[in-house]
Design a protein around this nucleic acid. Sequence first.
DNA 1: AACCACTACTCAGCGCTACTATGTACTGGT
DNA 2: ACCAGTACATAGTAGCGCTGAGTAGTGGTT
Lengths: 109, 109
Amino acid sequence: MGKQMTEMLKGTLEGIVLAFLTGNPAYGYEITAWLRGQGFTDIAEGTVYALLVRIEKNGLVDVEKRPSEKGPPRKVYSLNADGEKYLEEFWTTWGFLAERLESLRTEGK
Amino acid sequence: MGKQMTEMLKGTLEGIVLAFLTGNPAYGYEITAWLRGQGFTDIAEGTVYALLVRIEKNGLVDVEKRPSEKGPPRKVYSLNADGEKYLEEFWTTWGFLAERLESLRTEGK
DNA sequence: AACCACTACTCAGCGCTACTATGTACTGGT
DNA sequence: ACCAGTACATAGTAGCGCTGAGTAGTGGTT
């Protein structure tokens, strides 16, 4: 993946995944596939799983294990109340940053 | 600074500074002050100087030393051709990311 | 003269996140 | 028996911003 994208994803990938999880419980493999479909073609599987471990440890999601027809059991993640609050803060932070950058891009300094 | 903002700045702060430098040579202390004026109130001085060292080492800027009336000599940075090209790539990368996030925020997944 | 605020730059060490690379394990098709 | 696809896990690495401290020059106050 491009180095710029790699650095830019720091902090935002988490928000992207949490946003996807809103009202839409999903498991790791599924999330990875979705991300690739969104254009994040080079996201490594390991990155997603590590992220999921982290947000679970931070108490932002609930986890439920479900059997799969085609492989090992799935770990289905769903956003909980803390996660929703965290995601709201994420949007606030991102909104500020995006606004600053947008005005920089159009107006110049 | 908020942890979310700290992580999100990774990769974007560099672009912000390069964008500011476009057609507008500046020195570290000045850039720090400008960033604070833009709302990035908690950007550490050390962060900015380290970033400037990095982009200089990567050949994105030219540097000129100028005496100051009120302190140690200033190191004035100006964007060069490589820097402009890099900044263009930055906008492309950021544009993609911002678009994805924006559609996530409004449409939901 | 001593002190402090402001200007201006530097640097070592830390924490966090994404990436690399590899491994495990289950199902189904050939 | 083999391989592709599904599904998860993890140790080690690189990069970036932050913390905290230090150096240096100028000007104003006491």
